Amino acid sequence: DAEELIELVERALKEGREIILLGVRITSEEAGKWFIEWIRRFL
């Protein structure tokens, strides 16, 4: 579910982890915020 995915992304970014989803590397909080917004819009 989308909320679970958002929580995972937020937690990983807070822990300083690198996330790779759909071939996109997300390493900064700014990118994470963009990704979370995208999830909310399309899922």
Score class of each variant (00 low, 15 high):
residue 21 L to M: 06
residue 27 T to Q: 06
residue 36 I to V: 06
residue 13 L to A: 03
residue 41 R to E: 10
residue 30 E to H: 08
residue 14 K to I: 08
residue 38 W to T: 02
residue 26 I to M: 06
residue 10 E to H: 10
residue 10 E to V: 13
residue 32 G to C: 15
residue 11 R to Y: 01
residue 6 I to F: 07
residue 35 F to H: 00
residue 4 E to L: 15
residue 39 I to G: 00
residue 27 T to A: 13
residue 13 L to H: 03
residue 13 L to W: 04
residue 17 R to H: 08
residue 43 L to N: 01
residue 25 R to E: 04
residue 16 G to P: 03
residue 38 W to K: 00
residue 5 L to H: 01
residue 9 V to N: 02
residue 23 G to R: 04
residue 9 V to I: 12
residue 27 T to M: 14
residue 13 L to R: 02
residue 37 E to H: 05
residue 30 E to D: 10
residue 34 W to L: 12
residue 17 R to T: 07
residue 8 L to N: 02
residue 9 V to H: 01
residue 16 G to D: 02
residue 36 I to W: 12
residue 20 I to H: 03
residue 27 T to P: 04
residue 27 T to E: 05
residue 42 F to P: 00
residue 16 G to C: 14
residue 4 E to S: 13
residue 43 L to R: 01
residue 2 A to D: 07
residue 41 R to D: 09
residue 33 K to R: 13
residue 39 I to N: 00
residue 5 L to W: 11
residue 40 R to V: 10
residue 15 E to Q: 04
residue 8 L to V: 03
residue 9 V to W: 02
residue 4 E to I: 14
residue 20 I to G: 00
residue 41 R to M: 13
residue 26 I to L: 05
residue 32 G to W: 15
residue 33 K to F: 06
residue 39 I to R: 00
residue 36 I to D: 06
residue 29 E to K: 13
residue 34 W to H: 11
residue 24 V to E: 01
residue 33 K to S: 05
residue 12 A to K: 02
residue 41 R to N: 11
residue 30 E to R: 10
residue 10 E to Q: 10
residue 10 E to M: 10
residue 3 E to D: 11
residue 22 L to G: 03
residue 41 R to I: 12
residue 22 L to C: 15
residue 13 L to M: 09
residue 15 E to K: 06
residue 6 I to M: 04
residue 31 A to S: 08
residue 10 E to T: 14
residue 37 E to C: 14
residue 40 R to D: 09
residue 6 I to S: 03
residue 12 A to P: 00
residue 17 R to W: 11
residue 32 G to E: 06
residue 17 R to G: 04
residue 30 E to W: 14
residue 8 L to H: 06
residue 12 A to N: 03
residue 25 R to N: 08
residue 27 T to N: 13
residue 17 R to C: 15
residue 4 E to M: 14
residue 19 I to T: 03
residue 27 T to S: 09
residue 15 E to D: 10
residue 20 I to T: 08
residue 11 R to E: 04
residue 17 R to N: 04
residue 21 L to T: 00
residue 36 I to Y: 07
residue 43 L to H: 03
residue 30 E to Q: 10
residue 1 D to Q: 14
residue 2 A to I: 15
residue 34 W to G: 03
residue 19 I to Y: 03
residue 31 A to H: 09
residue 11 R to S: 04
residue 19 I to K: 01
residue 2 A to H: 09
residue 18 E to D: 06
residue 30 E to L: 14
residue 24 V to S: 01
residue 10 E to I: 15
residue 13 L to K: 04
residue 41 R to H: 13
residue 13 L to G: 03
residue 11 R to T: 09
residue 10 E to A: 08
residue 33 K to T: 08
residue 5 L to C: 05
residue 33 K to G: 05
residue 25 R to Y: 10
residue 26 I to V: 05
residue 19 I to S: 00
residue 29 E to A: 12
residue 28 S to M: 08
residue 13 L to I: 13
residue 17 R to P: 06
residue 40 R to E: 07
residue 30 E to G: 10
residue 24 V to Y: 04
residue 31 A to F: 14
residue 26 I to T: 09
residue 35 F to K: 02
residue 35 F to M: 05
residue 24 V to D: 01
residue 23 G to W: 13
residue 19 I to V: 06
residue 19 I to L: 10
residue 25 R to Q: 06
residue 42 F to R: 03
residue 5 L to Y: 07
residue 40 R to F: 14
residue 27 T to W: 14
residue 39 I to D: 00
residue 26 I to W: 04
residue 30 E to A: 14
residue 15 E to R: 04
residue 37 E to Q: 07
residue 23 G to F: 12
residue 7 E to I: 12
residue 2 A to R: 07
residue 11 R to A: 07
residue 43 L to Y: 09
residue 32 G to H: 07
residue 42 F to A: 03
residue 43 L to S: 02
residue 37 E to G: 06
residue 40 R to H: 08
residue 18 E to W: 09
residue 15 E to N: 09
residue 32 G to M: 14
residue 3 E to I: 12
residue 3 E to F: 15
residue 6 I to H: 04
residue 23 G to C: 07
residue 10 E to G: 02
residue 14 K to Y: 02
residue 4 E to H: 14
residue 23 G to H: 09
residue 29 E to P: 14
residue 40 R to Q: 07
residue 16 G to F: 15
residue 23 G to Q: 08
residue 17 R to D: 01
residue 33 K to Q: 08
residue 3 E to S: 11
residue 43 L to V: 06
residue 31 A to R: 07
residue 42 F to E: 02
residue 14 K to L: 09
residue 33 K to A: 10
residue 39 I to T: 00
residue 11 R to V: 04
residue 1 D to N: 14
residue 41 R to L: 12
residue 7 E to Q: 11
residue 36 I to M: 04
residue 36 I to A: 06
residue 3 E to L: 14
residue 24 V to K: 01
residue 7 E to M: 11
residue 33 K to V: 04
residue 27 T to Y: 11
residue 24 V to W: 06
residue 21 L to G: 01
residue 15 E to I: 09
residue 11 R to Q: 07
residue 7 E to K: 14
residue 25 R to H: 11
residue 42 F to S: 04
residue 1 D to S: 13
residue 3 E to N: 10
residue 35 F to D: 01
residue 10 E to R: 13
residue 8 L to Q: 08
residue 4 E to W: 15
residue 31 A to Q: 11
residue 4 E to K: 15
residue 8 L to S: 02
residue 39 I to Y: 05
residue 19 I to N: 01
residue 40 R to P: 04
residue 20 I to M: 03
residue 21 L to I: 11
residue 15 E to S: 11
residue 27 T to V: 14
residue 34 W to P: 00
residue 15 E to V: 08
residue 21 L to Q: 02
residue 32 G to R: 11
residue 31 A to W: 14
residue 35 F to A: 01
residue 42 F to Q: 04
residue 21 L to H: 03
residue 19 I to E: 00
residue 20 I to N: 02
residue 1 D to G: 13
residue 19 I to A: 03
residue 28 S to R: 06
residue 6 I to D: 04
residue 21 L to R: 04
residue 6 I to L: 11
residue 21 L to V: 12
residue 13 L to C: 15
residue 32 G to Y: 12
residue 3 E to A: 12
residue 38 W to M: 07
residue 8 L to A: 06
residue 25 R to G: 08
residue 35 F to V: 09
residue 3 E to K: 10
residue 17 R to E: 05
residue 9 V to E: 01
residue 26 I to Q: 04
residue 24 V to T: 05
residue 33 K to D: 08
residue 30 E to V: 14
residue 10 E to F: 06
residue 41 R to W: 15
residue 28 S to V: 11
residue 5 L to V: 04
residue 29 E to N: 11
residue 30 E to T: 06
residue 38 W to L: 10
residue 34 W to M: 10
residue 2 A to F: 15
residue 38 W to R: 00
residue 32 G to I: 15
residue 5 L to P: 00
residue 28 S to L: 12
residue 20 I to F: 03
residue 37 E to F: 05
residue 36 I to P: 04
